[in-house]
Design a protein around this nucleic acid. Structure first.
Lengths: 236, 236
DNA sequence: GAATGTCCTAATGTCGACATTACGCCACAG
DNA sequence: CTGTGGCGTAATGTCGACATTAGGACATTC
């Protein structure tokens, strides 16, 4: 696999980051369902740390939009309403739009290789949960290839929510996901490598729309107020 | 002024938010220059609070991108490199693109009135600092009118950096800003009210490009790798 | 003389205890 | 029976003290 031209920056992380990771995994693992309260003392006892790092970790998770905290009422796992999903879809669209443009414009062969590698990983995904992780890893690779720190941060700010969204999705309609997702991402990767911005943009938009439909279709009729960003860019 | 259809949510804020506000103002006021260290004990003594809220406030400021903190090395005010400005410009472009679309699609008369009001406020701006605040208030109003919580949050994540950018800008070329900015925003507001998405999009893009040029032009020749999102959609 | 190892200092990271707040229960007046 | 008020409890908000770490100055060695 890829040679590492520079050594890893060897940065040390505090307890807070560790705690944030554990809590995040717990949420994705179903330990804390959406809407559940995350009590500081409970977490600090369970993880055997003081409340300080736990507080800091909850702040980090709030930055990711995974939890919502209010004054003197603690933090709770978010619940994704249909409107939330529409928001995630449209915002993700805006971010990916920029990301795809930048990848097409100036991504190195190494960057593209990493994206391909992410696609390859989907073939080895055992269960749906693993596939979701691969799905996100693919998009991570795309944002990495865009070489845009703030864009990646903006993606990170909704990544966990998308993760939760995808997990909810496989809970509702597990069929058709495992089979088609790998092929779908292969198309995306190929379009990026081909350098065809418009084609890639359209494929990414279709990819998102396809994903969002599964959930919203069950809650209320289609025709959401928030259509994809695609197509309205140029035709003035 | 506008009738308030619902009472204010009356939410209480903690000390951390208060501290964050003070520190933010101090940075914008020039007390802490870009690159300066923000020591926790120093801040806690100056504001007469313990280090807990100060730590939390620094976390919040880091979420806004105003501060960068490293393990056991504390927080420092960010310094905006030309690349940073290019990143801010392009990301802001992606966000505004979505915002303008949504405002044109479904913004109420009340929303548009607030935007107009923000433009009116620019006429009464005494100095450049006040004008910068009005400038940001205008864009705040636009994002509010978009009625997209996560989009507003994404804007908040770069708002303070844009603020810093605009302050740096008036430090370099103070002429031409105070006179033209009000008119420029009036055009933006009118385009939004007219409901012409494409025209508004183009005006917003020109507005951003015009702002970014002032700074980047001094540092190195034009032709930055990161032109505005507008227009670069199709030609690959 | 340059490189290396060791100590010191000043900052952040972490902890446990106390203060403050919000929510629910229950009594009670209307 | 309904609405209001007070109280108790359990959580978060805040604080000060201790532990840990990074960076620099100094002495040491080859």
């Amino acid at each position: 696999m890829g040679e590492q031209t520079t050594v890893a920056p060897a940065r040390r992380r505090g307890l807070a980051d560790e705690v944030a990771d554990r809590v995040r995994e717990a949420i994705f693992g179903g330990v804390y369902a959406p809407g559940a309260q995350l009590r500081e003392v409970e977490l600090s006892q369970a993880l055997d740390v003081s409340r300080g790092p736990v507080r800091e970790a909850l702040l980090l998770l709030e930055r990711e939009g995974l939890v919502r905290s209010q004054w003197h009422r603690g933090a709770t796992v978010i619940t994704l309403s249909p409107q939330d999903i529409a928001e995630l879809d449209s915002l993700r669209g805006a971010l990916e739009h920029l990301a795809v443009q930048r990848v097409v414009a100036h991504a190195s062969e190494e960057d593209l290789a990493k994206i391909d590698k992410a696609v390859d990983g989907m073939g080895r995904a055992a269960d749906a949960h693993a596939m979701v992780r691969c799905d996100l890893a693919f998009h991570d690779a795309v944002y990495d290839a865009a070489h845009h720190r703030r864009l990646s941060e903006a993606w990170q700010a909704i990544r966990s929510q998308i993760h939760l969204f995808l997990l909810t999705r496989i809970g509702r309609s597990s069929d058709g996901y495992l089979e088609h997702v790998a092929d779908e991402h292969r198309l995306l990767a190929d379009a990026l490598r081909a350098g065809d911005a418009d084609a890639a943009l359209e494929l990414f938009a279709a990819h998102r729309h396809h994903a969002a439909q599964v959930l919203t279709a069950h809650d209320f009729p289609p025709g959401q107020d928030d259509q994809s960003v695609l197509g309205s860019t140029a035709k003035r």
